[in-house]
């Protein structure tokens, strides 16, 4: 077995066994996988394609709402549910719950991807800093939109349906494994598509979009699809987080630009944007550090986290993997390779 395969097996085994650590850790471990998904899917845009999006939190929120609305809407009237301001009296059977959750998460991904394609048709014409600024208001705009929409609870939010299967699998374990599966699916999907024409094309767009267009590349098509892929996974992640939190508020839980929205960027940069493993490493380090801050620096945790983000951007502009690649290019396959000694040169 190759070293890479061993690594995958070890990570998968750790992922499967992680809930044994105890119920107290389930939510944190689930969030770790979510962080990995958020960083990986942000990196499709920001790292691989060079389009720094501050608006990806939009898909997180849209996915979250889509999931809950599907979970409820398949069996009850959503308007009545939000008016009752609680899930009591709107019980779901076990089958209904799993059906609604499955459909909800799938729809979350699809609708988030559609929103990305639609928003993208307007915003992806912008380049560089202009795109970043253009996306800045996106999450805020969606938060305001949902805060004024009574059907989904407007500003007072919406609670997730009660989980009827506590006797079968505990709720926290269920959502841990959903997050775990999403993390693995996201990683391998991206690993796979980066190895196709898609991966090369979005890298080319990052390095010189005008050149890519001059060479006949369908740049707009690639950009739109890239953002949709990014949004797909971010949307499902949102659906899972909404259920873990149990209550959805447009500004503090769904469209949280100041927390998840910034974190996904910081994690990708910390690990090394534009690489497959960078966002994963960045997410793990960031999440653990953040938890340590919460435990040992209570009261100062936000200050510490802010400082951490500044330190990341100033001292690790190319991230951990980027730094390693500059140091040891040969280990990353960047080398002069002569064909036989006689051919020489170099």
């Amino acid at each position: 077995m190759s070293r890479q395969a061993v690594l995958y097996v070890v990570i998968a085994a750790a992922g499967v066994a992680a809930p044994l650590l105890g119920a107290g850790y389930h939510a944190q471990l689930a969030l770790l996988w979510i962080m990995i998904v958020l960083a990986l899917s942000w990196d499709v845009m920001g790292g691989q394609m060079g389009y720094n999006s501050f608006g990806n939190i939009t898909f997180f929120g849209v996915g979250m709402y889509t999931t809950i609305v599907t979970q409820v809407g398949l069996f009850y009237d959503v308007g009545a549910y939000t008016q009752a301001q609680g899930a009591a009296g709107f019980d779901l059977t076990l089958v209904q719950y799993y059906l609604g959750l499955g459909a909800g998460l799938l729809l979350a991904g699809m609708i988030a991807a559609m929103v990305a394609a639609m928003v993208g048709s307007g915003l992806l014409g912008l380049r560089g800093h202009y795109f970043a600024i253009g996306t800045l208001g996106l999450g805020i705009a969606f938060a305001e939109l949902f805060a004024g929409w009574d059907w989904v609870g407007a500003g007072s939010g919406i609670v997730t349906p009660l989980y009827p299967g506590e006797g079968l699998v505990s709720r926290s374990v269920l959502f841990y494994y959903l997050a775990f599966v999403l993390g693995i699916a996201c990683f391998f999907t991206l690993k796979r598509v980066y190895a196709t024409r898609f991966g090369l094309a979005i890298n080319a767009i990052r390095d010189d979009e005008d050149k890519a267009e001059a060479m006949g590349l369908h740049a707009t098509r690639y950009k739109t699809v890239a953002w949709s892929i990014s949004a797909f996974f971010t949307g499902i992640a949102g659906g899972i987080v909404g259920n873990i939190v149990g209550f959805i508020d447009p500004r503090d839980v769904a469209f949280t630009g100041a927390t998840y929205g910034v974190w996904m960027i910081a994690m990708a940069i910390l690990g090394g944007k534009g690489t497959l493993w960078g966002p994963v490493i960045g997410a793990v380090i960031f999440h653990i550090t953040q938890e340590l801050f919460w435990t040992y620096l209570l009261g100062w945790q936000r200050v510490a986290l802010g400082l951490l983000i500044v330190v990341i951007v100033v001292f690790f502009p190319s991230g951990i993997l980027g730094w390693l690649r500059e140091r040891y290019p040969e280990r990353f396959g960047i080398k002069v390779e002569t064909v036989g000694a006689s051919n020489g040169g170099g």
Binding site: L200, N203, D208, D210, I334
Partner: peptide
Amino acid sequence: RIYARMNCTRNMLVS
């Protein structure tokens, strides 16, 4: 104008 952060083979393939 080339794709600076891709190796030469990848520059060729994407072209």
